[in-house]
Structure formats: structure tokens, C-alpha cells
Design a protein around this nucleic acid. Structure first.
Length: 785
DNA sequence: CAGGAGAGGGTTTTT
DNA sequence: CCCTCTCCTG
């Protein structure tokens, strides 16, 4: 996020509201409970707000900012408010503005760690050997660079993947280790060349005038550690510091905060140790557990009144998280009515699970078993790993249930977006070698490996960037054939576009269009006959449209390198599908938690790599999942699942055994998962027809839900057998005729040109001709979306 | 040098 | 199973 406000904001007078508020009672304080109020009104000194799920943490945090402005005498530019995600930053900005009753343009230092560090680093880049216009590499660029280094060092990429090295280096950066400070214990990393390659990588980044994500924090910590005067200056500037999601901070972020808070100790950290789910990324729960030691005299405030979930949901979540040893401990309570118990259901396999959830969602919309009707956008499916999403997508595509995947492939990670961005980058910074490499032969200009070798050689010889090397190579006639002219033209074009950007004429949106058109990039996709080409052109158009919100290309590049979300707010109600990680901070009236099987959740890998702490983090993930639900929470598991195309059977998650019986309604016949509660072991899942009467009589298994399930199972009978499935598919195809206009969620609308078995040939209007399976297609006219 | 076929590898989680 | 990368052919 790029905000145009600069230091001038700091010197502005008090906001009008401060004077206006002076005598009157502050309405925003009246809305707070006593604990929240304490956290808001304790303005001086260190404060730790331990805020359980759904306890009004954001409200307290924003009220605190407003309170600082109104009565603390803080000017907007004197408050440093850091969040973890862009979404959280945006939300906080909005809510502060709302509470203040006017715009929040005067809060220049409210943002993510990364965004704030970019701003700081641009000002002081030269202190770490960079120029202010450094580029920020994404993971892809980072990997490419590391791959080069690994190869140059003579490593076999197969045995020593650059990916692995990237992970090691990231871990070092998360711990604020510069190459010279790598702990001796890590000397053996990456076949004992880890530290050396790390140093090379950092040197290379400096040459390229580039940083990666980790560097943003790392460089700022280095700068503050080595330039006391500068640190002192910022300590005076940021009189008050607020930190959201403190449990997610890594060591570098922790050091950064400690340095800045070092003088006045006016730091307020908000977090929940029970929701620390980013340990794998370097987050240190220890940071929050240790807060009182780090800041002696800290006021610790516990927010325990939950405004979100029913008592059943809270009780279940509390029981699960109680299984963790290392936690500060909180007791959530609520004044809400008890509502529905959690629901637990087992399935034969993953597809059955997806099918059941789909059907359940359908009936929930009309109101079922005495519950109120739920809208689609009140419902979310939260999975452990993103590959679980596919089963649901497949199923919902088939039945036409509108859904939205949150955190899927990100806009800016797409090929065409990255290419376009590379063009913009090389125009704005001609020394951006990575961008040059990316676009030099895209579209094809007849510049293959050989030509690139020559360019690299010349650039190295003259000690200039690749683009300049290319210019020299052309001048000296060292590129053969057609490539020579094309390369010369490219170099000239880039220079010309750069001049246009400098003159600000034409506007940057137009310029972006010109670059993409004149480079031949747009044309490349226009001539591409693959089905996804039209979509890519759409994306490029969208990219140019997004430029509208920015002053210039430079600002836009910044934005894209830090911000990842592209919310598709098309207004239509949809079920949300996302990972548990992506769901943190969100809430939904009804939540489905599928895939609760040992190995999947808790993830085998977490347990293997991190042992008990790993398992505890998984348990926190379970806690986060359950507490996302306001009214209804449905947990499910499948006995069998296809992994890498192979069938695997698994046992129900151990977390299921930790659910308190009194708060759970079991929709599954016990034969399916080996019983619940007393003596519940991990028996292998039995077949569906294992239902037995004894179970049906047991209290808790005789619920309306269970009877419904039984009915469903009987009605469906053997429809799941492979033979039956094929018949269904043929029937599906049979309901279409050639020439009929149909709709496909991915490809859009188009007429059927041929039918073979269950496959339809459709000439999609946007995506072009494609063969699709009949059940992914619906009749074109009256589709709900 | 470009485009297609085949093999191999990868699934946590993301700023 | 699906995607990416590599090798081979035209």
C-alpha cells in the first residue's frame, strides 16, 4: 500500500476532533467492557493485551489509537501501528477513520511490518549499500538467483535444491542473522556451504540493488543497531507503538520493535498465544510469552469476554486448546445463548465428504432441522492444506453451488502479470537484470541461450547492467542474425519508455498500455491459441486498470510487491473456501472443518519436523478453526482419501477425541470412526453399511441429523459404485444437445459443437474451443451466477 | 530456436 | 494427479 502522505503529516496540528472532544465524554469508550477500557486508557508504558478469539481486539486497538489522538496528545504521525497483513492494516485504517468521524490520511505509519520497513529503507538505503530505488524480489526471483549461485558453486541441483537453500536463508533472516552472524551450529547447513552461499546471495542482491522480503526487516534492524543517532530520531518520532498479532512476530520483527520502543517503552502489543500458527515461518510464540520480562512493569490485560460464538463452540474450542502445555491461559466466556452443539460426521472418502457438505449447504439455505436459514456468504469451509480445496471445487462446480476460493493463486504470481511487471520494472530501473532476463525473449525475439550468454559476458566485462551490455553487444555487432535488430529495438524502446515515464507524459496508465503493446507482449497473447490466452489478456487489462489508483508506475510496483490480495467483490453470495491460516481474524455464522484425519490434520509433516511444539501448533490451528464459527461448526473426516492419485486410508484426527462429548452432536454411526469419548481408540474406519441398531439407540446417536444421514445413505444405495457413476455421467451428457448454449465456471459461455459420450466440445465465447466433461457444464440461460 | 512430448517431483501454511 | 522442467525433434 502506498500512501502519498509524507512527513508533512507529522507537523500538522492536532486534529480538529481533539479539541472538540476535550471536555465531552468519549462515546467510543462507552462501547468498551472494563478490560478493553483498561487496555485503551493505559496510554503510557508497556501494555500487553491478551485477546482471545472474538473478544473485540480490533475494537480495542482502534479505540486506543483514537484515544491517543484525542486525549494522549499524540499527533497522527507519532503513532506507529503495525499489523501483519494488508487486510488487517486496511481494516484498522477504516475503523479508525470511522471512529474519528473523518479521514485517516494523517496516519502515515499504520501498515504492515513490510510496508513500513520499505518506507524506512527507501530513506536510508545507502546505509546498507543500496540505492533508494531498490527493487523487491518475490520468491520466484529469489529462487532463480539462488539457483544460479548453487549451480555456479558446482552443486547438483537434484541433491541440493535451491529451494532448500532459500528456506535456510529465510530462517536466518527471520532470526535477524546477517551472513557474518550465522550461528556456528548452522555452519554445516546446505552441505557446509550454506553460510558462504548466503553471503554470496546477499552480495548479489546488493549488486542488483535488490532486496527480498526478509531483507526489509533485516536491513532496518542492521541500520538501527549500527546508527544510534538515527534510531534515537525514530524513537522520538514514534512516541507510541501498537502491534497487532504479536504472537506472530519473528525475531527480526521483535528486535525491530524492541529497538524502536527502547526509549519510552510506550508499546502496546495485542495478541493471543493460542492463535500462534506461524511458527513454521519463524514466528516465535516466545515473544509474547516473554513480554513481561522484556518490558518490566508491563500492564497485562486479558480480554476474555467473547462476543462471537455460542457457549457450545467456546467450550469445544477451550477443551481442545487445553491440551497444550505451553500457553498463558485464558478463560473465554460469553453471554450468548447456547445454540447448536458442534456437529461431527465421518465419511467413507473425501468425495463423499465434499458431497455431503455440498448438500448440507444447499439445505441450510432453506433452514433445516429447526435452524435459521443461512446465506451462502455466511458459510465457510476451512481446510488444513490448499490441496483439499480441489474436492470441494470439483463438487461445487458439478452442482453449480457458487463458491469463492480465498488465497488461491495470487494475481501477481500469474505468468502474464509477472511478465508485464518485469517490463515495467526494466523501464523504471534499467539496471534490473532479473527483469531484463525475464523479458528479453518474451515475446520471442530470436534471442536464445547463446545470445544471452554473449550479453552476460559483455555486461560482466564492462561491469554494467545487462541492458547496457545488450546495447553494447548490438553496437559491436556481436549478436548474430535476426536477434540483433530485435535486441537493438528493445533496448531503444526501453530507453524511450523510460524517458516518457520521466516526463510524466503520457499518463502512467497509458504508458503501461504502450509498453505492453509496443513490446509485442499483448500481441503475443492475442496470437496464442491456447484456451487460457483470453483470460490472460483480461488479467493484463485488469492490471492496467489497477494502475489508476496510483500516482505513477513506481508507486504501483511497490504496491504489487507487497500486497497480494485481489478480492473479487462481485457482490454475489458465495460459500468461502480457504485454509485455516487464511481464516485467522475472520468469522462466519457457519463453518465446516473437513479433513480432520491424523496425518492431514494434525499434519504429519508438522509433527515429524517439529515434534510436540509442532503438534501444539496444529492444535492451535484447530482452535482457530473452531473459533471462527459464530453459530454452527461442523467437523468432518474421511476414512479414505486420494493422495497423489493413490488411495490412502487414515484414522480420525486425535483432535476429535479431544472434543468434549457434551458439546458435540455426532452425526456419524460409531462404526465409522470407532466411537467417541470413553475408550475411544483409533480404530480403522469401517464401511458405511456397518450401521448397527445398538448405536442408533444410544443417546446422542439418535439425533435428527443422524436419522437424516441414515435415510440419505439408504436412498443413495449403491449409486457410488463405479458402474453407477458412469451411467449418471452419460445421462448428464444426454441432457444436452448440439448447438445448446452452456455455461462452464472456468471458461464461461458457449455453444456445444459436438457430443461424444460424456464429453462435450464447446466453442466458448471467451476461452475458445474446448472439450469438457458434461457434468462441469450447466445449461446456459438460467444460471444463478 | 521453437514447440511438443515425456519424465520427475511435489502438497502445509505466506508477508 | 497435476504442474514444471527437460530433452528431443522439426
Amino acid at each position: 500500500m502506498v500512501d502519498k502522505t509524507d512527513d508533512s503529516a507529522d507537523s500538522r496540528g492536532l486534529p480538529l476532533s481533539a479539541r472538540a472532544m476535550g471536555a465531552r465524554a468519549a462515546p467510543y469508550l462507552d462501547q468498551l467492557n472494563p478490560a478493553q477500557r483498561e487496555a485503551v486508557e493505559t496510554l503510557e508504558g508497556p501494555v500487553l493485551m491478551l485477546a482471545g478469539a472474538g473478544t473485540g481486539k480490533t475494537r480495542a486497538l482502534t479505540a486506543r489509537i483514537v484515544h491517543l489522538l484525542n486525549t494522549g496528545g499524540a499527533r497522527p504521525g507519532e503513532i506507529l501501528a503495525v499489523t501483519f497483513t494488508n487486510k488487517a492494516a486496511r481494516e484498522m485504517k477504516e475503523r479508525v477513520a470511522e471512529m474519528l468521524g473523518h479521514g485517516v490520511e494523517g496516519m502515515p505509519w499504520l501498515g504492515t511490518f513490510h510496508a513500513i520497513c520499505v518506507r524506512l529503507l527507501r530513506r536510508h538505503a545507502e546505509l546498507v549499500g543500496l540505492k533508494p530505488n531498490f527493487t523487491i524480489l518475490d520468491t520466484d526471483d529469489q529462487l532463480r538467483l539462488l539457483r544460479q549461485l548453487v549451480q555456479a558453486a558446482g552443486f547438483d541441483e537434484k541433491r541440493w535444491p535451491a529451494r532448500h537453500l532459500a528456506g535456510i536463508i529465510d530462517a536466518w533472516k527471520n532470526r535477524a542473522c546477517t551472513p557474518d552472524k550465522v550461528p556456528a551450529a548452522d555452519a554445516g547447513a546446505f552441505n557446509r556451504h550454506g553460510p558462504e552461499l548466503y553471503a554470496q546471495y546477499q552480495a548479489r542482491l546488493r549488486e542488483l540493488n535488490a532486496v527480498d522480503f526478509g531483507d526489509l526487516l533485516l536491513h532496518m534492524v542492521t541500520i538501527f543497531q549500527t546508527h544510534e543517532d538515527l534510531l534515537e530520531q525514530y524513537r522520538r518520532r514514534f512516541r507510541y507503538i501498537l502491534v497487532d498479532e504479536y504472537q506472530d512476530t519473528n525475531i527480526a520483527q521483535y528486535l525491530w520493535l524492541r529497538l524502536l520502543a527502547g526509549g519510552h517503552h510506550n508499546i502496546c502489543c495485542v495478541g493471543d498465544d493460542d492463535q500462534s500458527i506461524y511458527g513454521w515461518r519463524g514466528a516465535e510464540v516466545g515473544n509474547i510469552l516473554r513480554f513481561e520480562k522484556d518490558f518490566p512493569g508491563a500492564r497485562v490485560v486479558r480480554l476474555e469476554q467473547n462476543y462471537r460464538s455460542t457457549p457450545h463452540i467456546l467450550a469445544a474450542a477451550s477443551a481442545v486448546i487445553a491440551g497444550n502445555q505451553s500457553r498463558l491461559g485464558k478463560t473465554l466466556w460469553t453471554e450468548l445463548d447456547s445454540g447448536e452443539r458442534l456437529r461431527l460426521i465421518g465419511h467413507w472418502d473425501g468425495e463423499e465428504e465434499a458431497r455431503w457438505i455440498g448438500e448440507e449447504i444447499e439445505s441450510m439455505q432453506g433452514g433445516t432441522r429447526g435452524m435459521r436459514p443461512f446465506d451462502l456468504d455466511e458459510i465457510a469451509i476451512l481446510v488444513r492444506a490448499s490441496h483439499q480445496m480441489r474436492a470441494f471445487e470439483d463438487r461445487f462446480l458439478t452442482t453449480g453451488l457458487p463458491y469463492r476460493v480465498i488465497g488461491g493463486p495470487r494475481f501477481y504470481e500469474r505468468l502474464e502479470i509477472r511478465d508485464a511487471m518485469a517490463y515495467f520494472r526494466i523501464v523504471m530501473s534499467p539496471a534490473d537484470d532479473l527483469a531484463f532476463e525475464r523479458i528479453v525473449n518474451t515475446p520471442k525475439r530470436g534471442l536464445g541461450d547463446k545470445a544471452r550468454q554473449v550479453i552476460r559476458g559483455i555486461a560482466r566485462e564492462h561491469n554494467v547492467p545487462l541492458l547496457e551490455g545488450a546495447r553494447i553487444a548490438v553496437e559491436q555487432g556481436m549478436i548474430k542474425g535476426k536477434g540483433s535488430a530485435a535486441l537493438g529495438r528493445l533496448a531503444a524502446d526501453i530507453a524511450r519508455w523510460g524517458r516518457m515515464a520521466g516526463e510524466g507524459e503520457p499518463g502512467h496508465m497509458e504508458l503501461a498500455g504502450i509498453i505492453l503493446d509496443e513490446s509485442g507482449y499483448t500481441e503475443m497473447w492475442q496470437n496464442d491459441k491456447s484456451p487460457d490466452a483470453p483470460g490472460r489478456l483480461e488479467n493484463l487489462k485488469e492490471l492496467v486498470n489497477q494502475l489508476d489508483a496510483f500516482e505513477n508506475l513506481q508507486g504501483f510496483l511497490e504496491h504489487v510487491s507487497l500486497v497480494m490480495d485481489n478480492d473479487q467483490n462481485d457482490g454475489a453470495a458465495r460459500v468461502s473456501i480457504m485454509t485455516l491460516h487464511a481464516a485467522k481474524g475472520l468469522e462466519f455464522p457457519a463453518v465446516f472443518l473437513p479433513g480432520w484425519e491424523d496425518g492431514l490434520f494434525p499434519s504429519q509433516r508438522s509433527m515429524d519436523e517439529s515434534g510436540i511444539p509442532g503438534l501444539e501448533e496444529e492444535r492451535r490451528l484447530a482452535y482457530v478453526g473452531i473459533t471462527r464459527a459464530r453459530e454452527l461448526c461442523t467437523i468432518s473426516f474421511a476414512g479414505n482419501r486420494r493422495v497423489f492419485g493413490q488411495w490412502q486410508s487414515s484414522m480420525p484426527s486425535r483432535f476429535i477425541d479431544e472434543l468434549p462429548e457434551a458439546h458435540v452432536e455426532v452425526l456419524t454411526p460409531p462404526g465409522l470412526y470407532g466411537g467417541h469419548g470413553v475408550g475411544a481408540g483409533h480404530t480403522a474406519p469401517a464401511q458405511e453399511h456397518d450401521l448397527d441398531d445398538r448405536a442408533a439407540q444410544a443417546d446422542g446417536y439418535n439425533s435428527p441429523g443422524w436419522r437424516r444421514l441414515q435415510q440419505r445413505l439408504q436412498v443413495r444405495g449403491g449409486a457410488d459404485a463405479p458402474g453407477a457413476r458412469q451411467v449418471l455421467d452419460l445421462e448428464a451428457a444426454g441432457s444436452f444437445v448440439v448447438g445448446q448454449r452452456v455455461f462452464h465456471q472456468k471458461f464461461g459461455y458457449g455453444p456445444i459443437t459436438a457430443i461424444e459420450g460424456d464429453k462435450l466440445s464447446v466453442d466458448f465465447e471467451k476461452a475458445g474451443p474446448k472439450k469438457v466433461v458434461a457434468r462441469y457444464v450447466s445449461a446456459g440461460e438460467d444460471v444463478p451466477f
